[in-house]
Design a protein around this nucleic acid. Structure first.
Length: 253
DNA sequence: GGTGCCGGGAA
DNA sequence: TTCCCGGCACC
């Protein structure tokens, strides 16, 4: 488990560094007007530096992403992941354009659907064997980096992130017999059941002889939950929900 | 009898 | 809010 997390952790940190730079650099830029921004291509083997983000994006798009200059369809800001801003101490304050370009990376920031690996909240808190996640789970900050569901799909680094997203969940269970409990943007069956019950005027009827009505209150999932996977002796490895005898948050259907 | 988890209570 | 558990449905 440890190595799994570690590998992914490195990815995450790399990723976060790259994106956080944009944010951390930004305030400086506003205060120190004599700093000049340059844009350096970070694509492996390429260190081209340009004056404007437009040109670096163009460069990345054409030279590394294989797109044409007018190929906007697959350039949802993904060029940004191949260049970085660097500051040059020059007395030149005419950087408005570049500021406009860089200060708002494709802010299509949409809350990634709540479910994409909604990290176990217990992971975010204290789980000792998932401390890495606690520190680097890209909860809100992650999405504030301008990562969007759309940009999620293409750029390689986003793919890394994706792989982390899913691997983070695969990582915990010691058994390999399980399909990864990847969460997608849909409610769990129980949530759906509850929603349905809440919305249905007959919601209270399910408790009346469910066997005769054929409506089962809680069709049991075939997914093995923490209790079954880890066993009672490894209760500390259960997700918090299971520890609390709540609906498992780690192994959802 | 084991499992999953709702409902509710204690801290 | 976090944590825990009684109790019930399901298997």
């Amino acid at each position: 488990v440890g190595s799994f997390h570690k590998d992914d952790g490195i990815d995450i940190e790399d990723f976060e560094d790259e994106t956080i730079d944009v944010d951390t650099v930004e305030p400086k830029r506003k205060r120190q007007t004599h700093l000049r921004l340059r844009y350096q291509c970070t694509f492996p083997g390429c260190s081209l530096v340009t004056d404007t983000c437009a040109s670096i994006e163009k460069h990345v798009r054409t030279a590394h992403l294989g797109g044409s200059e007018s190929d906007d369809s697959r350039s949802d800001g993904e060029e940004e992941f191949y260049y970085t801003e660097i500051e040059v101490n020059v007395d030149n304050v005419t950087q408005k354009f570049s500021e406009m370009c860089t200060s708002s990376p494709p802010e299509v920031v949409g809350p990634l659907s709540p479910s994409i690996p909604v990290p176990d909240h217990d992971y975010q808190k204290k789980d000792h064997n998932t401390k890495f996640q606690a520190s680097s789970v890209p909860s809100s900050g992650f999405f504030h980096q301008g990562i969007t569901p759309m940009s999620f799909s293409n750029p390689p680094q986003m793919k890394r992130s994706m792989s982390w997203q899913s691997s983070a969940h695969v990582s915990s269970p010691p058994t390999h017999s399980l399909s990864p409990p990847i969460r997608v943007t849909k409610p769990t069956p129980q949530e759906r059941l509850h929603q349905h019950q809440a919305q249905s005027p007959k919601s209270h009827l399910y408790s009346v002889s469910p066997k005769t009505t054929g409506f089962h209150k809680k069709p049991r999932s075939e997914v093995r939950k923490c209790r079954k996977v880890y066993g009672m002796e490894n209760r500390d490895q259960w997700c918090t929900q299971c520890k609390w005898k709540k609906a498992c948050s780690r192994f959802v259907d």
